[in-house]
Design a protein around this nucleic acid. Structure first.
Lengths: 347, 347
DNA sequence: TTGACTTGTTTAATCGATTAAACAAAATTA
DNA sequence: TAATTTTGTTTAATCGATTAAACAAGTCAA
């Protein structure tokens, strides 16, 4: 690599001290510096194509203008959409984002946090895995500025921006009930993650509030393993549809479950919504391409990303108050849950 | 934030110099250091929960173990999948990834490169926009280690890892011809981007090699504008299907075009493949959920990410040779291009 | 004329590591 | 015993910025 230009090079060329160069380029001591000198310094900086060495600057100022983003998997559309929003929001404030995927593993997550802290990130945005409570607790104790997104631990007092999962789940089930479905199933995850538990609670409560008995055979919680998920979802659907008491409507608890589920239902050539109504958490492009576009619970990603970043930056600035947000979801109703197409919004 | 522990704290507690602590913690001067002292230093480091300040280390060693990734849009599944692979590959070598989305804008891209270079990234992986040639040229002149992915400029001698777009396109068209389709259309982008041009060239050549006249009315190149893309794609499809000489098969040049196109075709309730066969570049989850799963050109993303990272790290290590790879694509044939009753829509 | 400001700039310490070179004490060789 | 080597550790410069404090020279008021 070619030699880098530093403050000293400019200082020497102009014939002043590096201090003066620094003051000029940072617009400090405005009134005190002779205009002609300041201009000359700026000229030479331009001419030599000077660029600040942020590493040196960060060392001195102990501020890196970097935030660390830890998601389960950056290739998941939920995560990458969020990442994009956070990137834009950070950029507006001159922050850069470094990211890492934890794969829901505490080991990886710990490693990422360590790496990011070693790099002196100013703060963290984390979508924590189910076993990350201790880690989050430790971050809080160390007074590292951070915000949780999407998932959080109700017992630990931290900043978070998440969905009101309970209400979202209720509204989807309520809608299915209103549409006349009675044997409503759900495929969820076998995890203590609070947001997933809330979705379950909403499902059960909404059923019971509608006078429908909660039949626990209709709630299948599959194991949280990316590699086996396709098989697990297939099996779950087969069980739920088995002759005897087949379900007439199904709610998927996550976009990953939905993607596998829809693929299987497509292959089985089940008529949606006539034989089975479908609804899911999370929006993906895929939902539009099913022949009966899928009703879904739309998370306000833009708001989540924007607020998470905003709260983090405020924490970095020294704000020590705790902000906990459960944003409302929007139920987007489409033909996968509505028999009579004339009630659908025009595409 | 709580006071950070530094080398000096350990040195003072043990009663040695910071140099010795540094040697021990970096396993240097192995033979020379008294074992008892080394052990004591390690103990105290552990006890105080010491973590290296990478910023300080980077300043001294001028190595950040960071690579910058610039894609068009991290929320595009192609980009985020690639990002994930690069992340994993980088992680194996103890590198961290910082990322940014250029939105195909040279201005943003330049800003990102500047930001990343100011942060002293060791190298860059870039999916350049159509007007990025000058920027890429400048990076080359500055001897910054970098690798282009997905897109590249044939006239600039740089490292790149991309698809053999020409062959990929040919193989898709050849397949459509073999299946008996004769009026084959393509929706592509109006851009000088070489990879897109190659896809066009493959389309035209493959048609002509099959004895089919290239009818330029069947190739529609829409403008490259994310916001207007949905409308452009709809219009293009309407034109291609207009009574008179409707096409009987259609190739989408990118996943974004495909997503919009499939949505529209779904809404129009066109029978695929009976009335219209469909194939596309790039794989997405969405392709499986169309009632007739879509034939697609599968890019070897894993290989692309892996090789791009490998080549970059070698360049960072000082390797000055140039590697240019056009990887072969795989045509995944499914029911959207194959007439077969069992794939009829289940409506 | 002298002390007190202003203006414009430099000096030098500092951030937290790394590392060549210097140094001291112990061990070995001559 | 003196010279040399080995072992174990410290000193001090350095990376490239920032910034409080010092300094010099000019202006002004009393």
């Amino acid at each position: 690599m070619i030699k880098k230009i530093c403050l000293k090079d400019i200082a020497e060329k102009v014939g002043v001290s590096t201090a003066l160069v620094s003051y000029v380029l940072n617009n400090k001591k405005e009134g005190r510096i002779k205009k002609s000198v300041a201009q000359r310094i700026r000229e030479v900086a331009m001419e030599l194509n000077y660029h600040t060495n942020q590493i040196a600057k960060s060392l001195k100022t102990s501020k890196t203008f970097t935030i660390g983003l830890i998601v389960a998997d950056i290739s998941n559309p939920f995560s990458s959409s969020l990442a994009r929003i956070i990137e834009d929001e950070a950029d507006k404030n001159n922050y850069t984002v470094i990211f890492g995927s934890s794969d829901e593993s505490l080991l990886r997550s710990n490693k990422l946090v360590d790496t990011f802290l070693n790099r002196q990130v100013d703060g963290l945005i984390i979508a924590p895995g189910e076993d990350a409570a201790s880690q989050i607790f430790s971050l809080r104790q160390q007074r590292i500025p951070f915000v949780l997104v999407d998932r959080y631990f109700p017992d630990i007092k931290t900043n978070y921006v998440a969905l009101d999962n309970y209400k979202a789940s209720c509204s989807a089930i309520q809608h299915l009930v209103n549409c006349g479905f009675k044997r409503i199933g759900m495929i969820s995850l076998n995890t203590p993650l609070f947001n997933i538990q809330e979705r379950k609670r909403g499902y059960i409560d909404a059923l019971q509030n509608s006078g429908i008995n909660f039949d626990k055979r209709r709630l299948i919680e599959i194991d949280y393993d990316n590699d086996k998920m396709e098989t697990s979802v297939k099996n779950a659907i087969n069980i739920l549809l088995a002759p005897g008491h087949p379900i007439d409507a199904l709610l998927f608890a996550t976009n990953a479950i939905a993607t596998h589920g829809l693929r299987h239902i497509n292959a089985l050539q089940i008529k949606v919504p006539e034989s089975l109504a479908l609804a899911t958490f999370d929006k993906t492009d895929a939902l539009d391409l099913f022949y009966a576009p899928i009703t879904y619970i739309n998370q306000p990603l833009q708001e989540m990303g924007r607020l998470a970043t905003k709260i983090l930056l405020e924490a970095i600035e020294g704000n020590t108050s705790i902000t906990q947000l459960n944003l409302p979801a929007e139920l987007v109703i489409r033909s996968s849950t509505v028999m009579d197409k004339k009630y659908l919004p025009a595409i």
